[in-house]
Amino acid sequence: MTDFIQLVLAGAADGAIYGLLALALVLIYRSTHIVNFGQGEMAMFATYLSWSLLDAGVPFWGAFFAAIVIAFFIGIIIHRVLIHPLEGSPELTIVIVTLGIYLFFNSIALWIYSGVPKVYPIPAGVPRQSWEVGGVFIVPYHVTIFAILFGLMMLLFAFFRFTKVGLAMRAAAAQPLSSTLVGISVPMMMMLGWGIAAAAGATAGMLSAPIVVLEPNFMATILIFSFASAVLGGLDSPVGAVLGGFIVGEVSALGGRYIEFIGNDLQIVLAFALIVLVLLFRPAGLLGRPQVVRV
């Protein structure tokens, strides 16, 4: 039993990270209807930047927030320079450009930082020693991840619910044409969406780096898990993305343990199966709105 609880806890920690990156994917999908294949690599690059800052002696949380801010601006610049001019282009073109973003950041990171894995520290002030509660070990770092995810969710919720800009962003995503008529600059809102998504992605990257190792391809696998989470939750539902993240985290943790074939190496196959099953049988995901197709 304790073993099971232990697994659930570990699965939830992974799930929180998938949920965060999935949240980034959803934010971009909602604002621009683009599936951003470069999301993971953007996050990876931001994580490297924070590593550089740490390496230069900046304290952990300073580097952490600085990287988030830089990621936000990278997101904005990418939208401004690459995505916005392509508005109305065929889907293939946009898929290709986001693949370009993937390749670009992947190889830039390889170029600057080389492929040698780097050790990324857990945040300053978080104890390394696990707490034992009734035979179950609770990893303080996992608690940190939950706290950050929870904090970020609250922040985003408040932002989209109570601030003028947040409301405008939601309006622009839901009704671009009417929003323009009431004076909301839709491109500006899309740009903000890319910025916030990049910031959320960077957070996911920096939180996962201590668990895995920091190397240029480290987000590629996490991206697939996050795609599974986002698709499962419904690509246009931020709450669904986080929920999907937890489900995917648990499914792969428990599946890896209890399905012998899966083991530790094939958890990604579960993510793939989830993606395919959801897309086939419930394309709108758990919380997404079904799309109406007109002839």
């Binding site: 683009i34 599936v35 294949f37 889907e91 293939l92 946009i94 898929v95 590629a220 696998t221 697939i224 795609f227 599974a228 698709v231 190496d265 094939l266 990604i268 196959v269 993510a271 793939f272 993606i275 395919v276 897309l279 086939l280 394309p283």
Partner: peptide, 20 residues
């Protein structure tokens, strides 16, 4: 049943799982 970016996503995931 998949179109555009969704198909791209599913096939990319397929590419990812083959080596494991």
């Amino acid at each position: 049943r998949l179109k555009g970016p969704y198909l791209a996503l599913a096939t990319l995931a397929f590419a990812v799982i083959v080596m494991p």
